[in-house]
Design a protein around this nucleic acid. Structure first.
Lengths: 337, 337
DNA sequence: CTGAAAGCGCTTACAG
DNA sequence: CTGAAAGCGCTTACAG
């Protein structure tokens, strides 16, 4: 059966079956023009030696590999959701998936990682790639689809409707009677961060409520960045009655800070976030937030990439998927003052 | 800058810099014996053309690639945890990670997927691989570490202490006063399923409580398999006062069935599971279960693989990591009968 | 210090 | 129906 030493190559099979490697290749790839007898011989040799063709060698020689790539700079629970969506879209499609992760950039956010990863794969291994949350414009010799693209990206992409989601959450707060609604923004440069801020401004504008610059703080999506900002916002005489943070990590951090300051959530302060991460449902009280299905983002991205690789250029290039407001216990009407 | 057409190759760089590809290769790989002037020329050509070396071509030629592989047959939230652990272990180690997923086997559980995937990578692309939850013995030309190995596997592996975890949960139930404790087993053939059953039997034996074969049902880890089994167990005159299911999916399914039958959990029936998936904390009441850190499993597996690839054969080969009992509302003392 | 050449494991025209 | 040969993009002895 399988050797424990060096891997079995096509030459080994050819020698064992008494044919050329060209013939073995034809059998392995189901090409026409091989006699039934030869096919049987080769198959039996393959079986006996436990041969598997080398992905790398085949990729190098072929122009088309039927392998799609995905690059990401870290793994979160939402990455798993994206992957599930991608795999479901690729199921039975004939495309395999290679995910490439570089050990050096994990944690350290090195600019341009997506370009380097893409280039290493695209030359030969993959027919096209998905890039999750790229830091800039993505470009490659093969088709690329971005999930949650960078600001001003013109590449094909799929993203959640951050604008509508943020608008809905702020409208929810306005509907409860809040007027002093603060906003903690996300990492500058990300399209999602910008769209969520736009939604905040839009909802206030639509309601005829002026935006108070003092109520806008700038974080970077990490809980650590939000804590001091929340403290500053709440440590004023005229403090907001509600805070909308651009993601759940920052919103949960904000709720903790409020509690530490002796404020009741939602009694003294309503808090809302964006993403609907699992922790938000577990929090006490549960966090009001906006759900975006990473599963669907991944699935749609994979469908787009398949079409691009196959050359079916029809269909929209920058897809926006709907979001959904999830109301939980962290938001309520403000106390009558 | 970057071309939009065919990828830039080493020949392109060589031509542009007026040297041979051998020299370009030396510069790219930082080999000694190249004049400062030549290095500068080559570097500038690389910069100008936006060249990135092809992972595939380099892998094919080199014996060592400094790329580790990971194969899995699906992506769950726990897969993301494993990946996080692996990436943390690989951080700054000089090893990159390639995850390979085959579209055809997703969902359909095709025997031997791990062998095929491993073979496709191991020939040339990777120096070694991690296999997550393999269905059988794993073997390859390069080192392999299994996470949650198959029963009777002798390959290097890392797994949670399923025996101790299951023992602890049953001891918890015994401590509450339960004596008729049923068990819904997991998929036969998996080492984890076997160890959890062993733990159930051990705890009962240690307590001097005989095992009633009528209280053991055989599921396959899916909620669908557990529902009819739970119904059968509870639809008897002498029904158990507690059910321990071999994983949370089956335990949550069991709790639903009990509720549908008009039984209160934990009033009429205590239910416990294994895994501590996010849903278990969200359930009402929360599910008593055993936590195993998939993050640590991944991290340890990556450390082992690094050592194997480097040829440091010291250290244990089959690592077992501790588990932790998590008591929630789904278990309580039985009603006095 | 540098280049010509061989070769990693495949696939694919090109002959026959 | 089958094989010898070239070549995918690299790396590495071997010369010089």
């Amino acid at each position: 059966m399988a050797e424990s030493g060096a891997p079995v190559t096509m030459s080994d099979v050819a020698r064992s079956a008494g044919v050329s490697t060209a013939t073995v290749s034809r059998v392995v790839n189901g090409r026409y023009g091989v006699s039934a007898r030869t096919i049987a011989q080769v198959r039996s040799a393959i079986e006996q030696l436990g041969y598997e063709s080398s992905l790398v060698a085949a990729s190098l020689r072929r122009s088309r590999t039927n392998v799609l790539g995905l690059v990401t700079h870290s793994f979160h629970s939402y990455t798993a959701e994206v992957l599930k969506g991608v795999m479901d879209a690729l199921s039975q499609s004939g495309f395999d998936l290679i995910i490439y992760a570089n050990s050096d950039l994990y944690g350290t956010f090195s600019e341009g990682w997506e370009r380097r990863h893409l280039a290493r794969l695209a030359g030969t291994l993959t027919d096209g790639s998905i890039v999750v949350t790229p830091s800039g414009e993505v470009r490659s010799g093969t088709p690329v689809v971005a999930v949650d693209p960078a600001k001003d990206s013109t590449a094909p992409s799929v993203t959640a409707d951050n604008l509508a989601g943020a608008t809905a959450v702020v409208e929810h707060l306005l509907g409860l009677g809040h007027r002093r609604i603060a906003f903690i923004a996300g990492r500058a440069g990300l399209a999602s961060a910008q769209a969520r801020e736009d939604g905040y401004r839009k909802a206030l504008a639509d309601a005829g409520t002026p935006v108070d610059p003092a109520l806008i703080a700038r974080g970077d999506f990490t809980p650590e960045s939000a804590a001091p900002l929340a403290r500053a916002l709440l440590d004023t005489a005229d403090r907001p009655t509600a805070i909308f943070a651009a993601n759940d990590d920052m919103a949960l951090s904000t709720a903790r800070v409020a509690r530490d300051m002796g404020l009741d959530v939602p009694g003294d302060l309503s808090v809302a976030g964006f993403d609907n991460i699992p922790d938000s449902a577990l929090a006490e009280p549960g966090l009001t937030t906006v759900d975006q299905s990473m599963y669907l983002l991944g699935k749609e991205a994979a469908h787009m990439l398949k079409a691009l690789v196959r050359g079916d250029e029809d269909g929209p290039r920058q897809v926006v998927l709907p979001t959904r407001l999830v109301v939980r216990g962290s938001t309520a009407a403000p106390r009558i003052s």
